[in-house]
Nucleic acid binder design. Sequence first.
RNA 1: CGGGGUAUAGCUCAGUCUGGUAGAGCGUUGCGUUUGGGACGCAAAAGUCGGGGGUUCGAAUCCCUCUGCCCCGACCA
Length: 565
Amino acid sequence: MRLSQFHLATVKEVPADAEIASHQLMLRAGMIRKLASGLYTWSPLGLRVLRKVEAIVREEMDRAGAIELLMPSVQPRELWEETGRWEKFGGQLLKIKDRKEQEFCYGPTHEEVITDFARNELKSYKQLPVNFYQIQTKFRDEIRPRFGVMRAREFLMKDAYSFHLSQESLAATYEAMYQAYTRIFTRLGLGFRAVQADTGAIGGNASHEFQVLADSGEDAIAFSDGSDYAANIEKAEALAPSIQRPAPSAALQLVDTPTQKTIDEVAAFLGVAPQQCVKTLLVRGRDGLVALCVRGDHEINEVKAGKLAELPGESALASEEEILALTGTRPGFLGPVGLPASVPVIVDRSAAVLADFVCGGNRDGSHYTGANWERDARVTRVEDLRKVVEGDPSPDGKGLLRMARGIEVGHVFQLGKKYAEALKASVLDDQGKSQVMSMGCYGIGVSRIVAAAIEQRHDEAGIVWPEAMAPWRVVVCVLNQRNVPEVTEAAETLYRTLCERGIETVLDDRGLRPGAMFADMELIGIPHRVVISERGVAAGSFEYRGRSDSESRTLSAEALLELLA
RNA sequence: CGGGGUAUAGCUCAGUCUGGUAGAGCGUUGCGUUUGGGACGCAAAAGUCGGGGGUUCGAAUCCCUCUGCCCCGACCA
């Protein structure tokens, strides 16, 4: 490619609404342009990168035995009614009507469509297992799109769905996908980690997220410093402390805390550590309010809380009015002592081993000191309720937990029979009996990977692409080409040679001043740069500089070709 | 959905408080000089001041209203 024939549109100024590095750099490099909130045009430059990612994903999916197909992006309401998700999916589902007032949605995911396809196509166990995938545009009407293509509303995703008669077969394909994903992210040159994930409302047996490690990531992940354990913080188990609860030694005493509502305020006021306090939250349960208690320095893990039998599948905090009606006090003074008998008291493992603790007095402006479980406060049950924190023991018993931030770029999931049952997708087994199929699903955020890579790999000058994702591997920069024909000839010759050898090369023949040209090529992150100048031509050598190198090197033609081969 | 902000040239922004001829930098076009780290000079094009309504002799500026976009929160493969 000759840059004089390409549409390169870099800009110097950072657009005002870009916050994170990848968004800023993608706009400055001219890879994307915003059309509306969460909607982006991929420019020719951006598309080259997107296609690189897509190609690697496709190769590895094919290698792993998956079969590509393509489903519609627009899907009929009736199909979504069959699984109940027309209502349950919520506001993220973009609903549209056609001219006959028939209702459709723009597909946010394709479980319904693929399962419909499977129930029509798959009749016999002999056709199983099978794994279908597509690389396709999805739309989710995110409440708050942000960070450019990192969290866009329209985005490109690879989604695969496998079908099985046995759990063993599902587990085998799941493992194959896990391996394929590892290969994909390794080939892309990304620093990533596969972490255990919560299976959410979908249920299922196993789930891993593939997280690209980056400080700007929206997900928190916990990993062990003593083993390969790693999990999304939503999933990471907080082990029960190994100590026994000490016997009560203090008397229960109500003390005035007129304006101290938060744990920090109360702890400072009373001169105790937050670890010696119990924080109580009231949430809406199936039958009235439920009390959740954690240690003062810990936080409730809403995913864990949502799984409690007493809750309706999600944890929603009670309103101030509900709390006032039940306890006669306001948030800030809640505690487990003296709650009505109708309120279940679920206590976190770490809070359950406290003795002589501080907690809310259930009346405005007071807290208890010297409170003790059983003696003063009911314990309905002890559960794992809290978010893990740095330094917690690893759930596998090896090492301590550390925290990192990640960008979720892939997710593998054993779905089980949920969708196949809802849509009656079954095949005949070897006994001639009808069996509902089990499913797995496996997603990769293709467009998000581009942003995630930049987030992980950039410097002051711009993007630093991994070789596998770069729009071109090599740029040949022509200096002062108008005045010295020999320089142009030398550049053309090198450009042709590289192209003939299958090395993806771009020739910067725009005739810009050197500074502007170098700045552009560094901004768009080309891994290898060769400068052709009068000086070099006279000496018969080439000036080479890698994107991350601090200095240029002078190379002979042979050395250069060897380096780029 | 709650709170906050913002909308002026292709981009980044002044101008709005205190009403009176529409501004700058970058980018773009032309000519010339330049050519190893985002050159310089001269000339030029470019704006329904987000939309609608109102007040006024006169509105980018004041009032009402609608909309887009951004941030924080709640939410989320």
